[in-house]
Design a protein around this nucleic acid. Structure first.
Lengths: 195, 195
DNA sequence: CCTACCGATCGGTAGG
DNA sequence: CCTACCGATCGGTAGG
């Protein structure tokens, strides 16, 4: 194997660097499509070194997903705690969610959206615990919207349809495209709230 | 490698059998997570035999996607050709689309939704040609709905949001769940048409 | 975190 | 479509 070009600028936390590299590569090429050597090289390490930080490649995958969900939850829960009318809160949640899915350098949650299948059943359970909190947060806002008659139909389906609109953006959004993330967030909220 | 259990019930077209097996396995485990040996065994062949039908594994992937899109298009274009009010036509298109995405034995289009990244750039172009026809078909109905004031906002975004609601169902729908595919289709159409 | 390495598995092929 | 096989690459490890 080739030698990494540089000794890598000394960084406080190599584990974090590694995780960021994993997130980016997993998102671009998929978990199975990314080799340990790809990761090592991108992090400026030799091919055996990632295993000093993570026991297995599978551990890198869960770590990426968990970190993404935890950061996302922190953001969303802060927004959800604001005292605002439901529709206004919803708009802000939509914007925050789109940021964690399409924003510059936000590769962590997309990895979860794309590579769920690659998790072992045991690790799937670990991630589901976090995902449940995500679902509960959105379900609560959805319920509020429905109570106000701004959103109709079955409550759980309404949440899943909302996730569809938002999460699908990860597939087609490109920075520098026809619409900015702000514009898309605004239109998505309007679309979902039938305004 | 182990010997395939049976000689495989004689079938008219082994290539088609192989493609069905590929679609199912690619959907379940991903393209990179499925080995030629997985495919051979599931098809009741020996491990070198799939290459009698396809030049490379990559060719199996495009073939799955192309067949899925072609069949889907045939269905949808038949529905789109019906003389019906836009909203009614939309409802039927939603139902047909959900069938090709969640229906029993419909693994072909989900492979495209999941494993797009695994296509080589050249093959991506081949598939995009078909996907464009899909997009155009939906864009036309979306435009009709907007002309009637049943759907608002930017026309292209409205289509992408619609795709989000529909395509995302592939992630969470499970046969035998709380809602049938018919019920989901009806609610999705209502949700999108803000009825 | 590097060095040097291993066994397993991978996609693919030649020849029949 | 089977048989027998190959070179490459994979995730991971022991020892420092």
């Amino acid at each position: 194997m080739r030698k990494p070009k540089k000794k890598a600028a000394p960084s406080g936390n190599r584990r974090e660097d590694l995780l960021r590299v994993c997130a980016r590569l997993f998102r671009e090429k998929g978990f199975d499509g990314t080799s340990i050597r790809d990761i090592s090289q991108a992090a400026g390490m030799h091919s055996g070194s990632p295993f000093y930080h993570f026991e297995t490649k599978q551990e890198m995958l869960v770590a990426v997903m968990e970190q993404g969900l935890e950061e996302g939850l922190r953001h969303l829960e802060a927004v959800a705690a604001l005292k605002l009318p439901p529709a206004e809160k919803f708009r802000k949640l939509v914007r925050a969610h789109l940021e964690t899915i399409c924003g510059e350098g936000h590769d962590f949650i997309p990895v979860m959206l794309y590579d769920w299948r690659s998790l072992t059943p045991a690790n799937r359970r670990r991630v589901i615990a976090l995902k449940d909190r995500y679902d509960a947060l959105w379900q609560k806002v959805t319920d509020e919207l429905q109570a106000q008659g701004i959103m109709g139909g079955d409550a759980q389906l309404a949440r899943l349809f909302t996730f569809g609109v938002l999460n699908w953006t990860a597939r087609w959004y490109r920075a520098g495209g026809r619409k900015s993330l702000d514009e898309i967030a605004e239109e998505a909220a309007r679309f979902l709230l039938r305004e």
